[in-house]
Design a protein around this nucleic acid. Sequence first.
DNA 1: ACCGTCTGGTTGACATGTTAACCAAGTGCC
DNA 2: GGCACTTGGTTAACATGTCAACCAGACGGT
Lengths: 138, 138
Amino acid sequence: MKMQDGLSEFLERQLRNRYGLSSADYQVLAHLSETPEGRLRSFELGRLLRWEKSRLSQHLGRMQNRGLVSRERCPSDQRGAVVVITPRGSDLIKVAAPQHVADVRDVLIDHLTAAEMAVLVTIGDKVGERLAALEREQ
Amino acid sequence: MKMQDGLSEFLERQLRNRYGLSSADYQVLAHLSETPEGRLRSFELGRLLRWEKSRLSQHLGRMQNRGLVSRERCPSDQRGAVVVITPRGSDLIKVAAPQHVADVRDVLIDHLTAAEMAVLVTIGDKVGERLAALEREQ
DNA sequence: ACCGTCTGGTTGACATGTTAACCAAGTGCC
DNA sequence: GGCACTTGGTTAACATGTCAACCAGACGGT
């Protein structure tokens, strides 16, 4: 648990200090920039991030005010919104992503042996399994 | 990272649904209940939790309103506050703690071999080391 | 076509966390 | 003693997350 908190706090702070991004912002931009068009339906983004819809809506509103994304009406579904990454958002993520990856290496990956890394992945999978099972049960 | 988020979210939700406690509340009560008198200087609690002082102050205010803790002036330092767990807080944590531990087993520990557990501890230590080193550097 | 239900999304009220400013009491040095 | 500096703690303003209520458009059975 301490490792958990320490890692998130460190990574969050790096992103915020260097680029003015929260890790929430980062994840939104990362997902958008991974699509060929830099655009996603709102609910798709929500599914990818596993965020509640109200959180997504509020967060996108703030990111829109800061000029990182914009929203368009969806032509095929009149209810829908399409989220589009702006040039500014795109530039930011292009700079921030490599540095963020470097930070993760610096504070975690570089200090693990291949065997340790493998075990960590196994543990992640097992926990993911268990959580998914609990979610199906409920 | 996903494991991280999934675990915290699950544990947080269990605590909240069953006892109306956030994990922040839980940690405060846990630390208090571990002292013989159920009381701690505010800044001691802050050091243990690694919380900023304003966060601590705000959170204790809310917990006080809910009757989980109370605050007294410190006799030896007129600036100081002593945080005391109330009977209600004490009862709550006595019920919540075993269940919380059981949840952690259920979703993590029970699914790991002894070897995996050992590696996880090693990784935690290494990351802790690295973060502490970065903090000393700053 | 019509109506009940589901789905995508927004909003308001509230809980929580961060930063910066502030205040009052200790501490150290002259 | 007096004065600068540090320390413990609170507060205000703001960013973020949650829940519940709401609205409008889609969808399915009749």
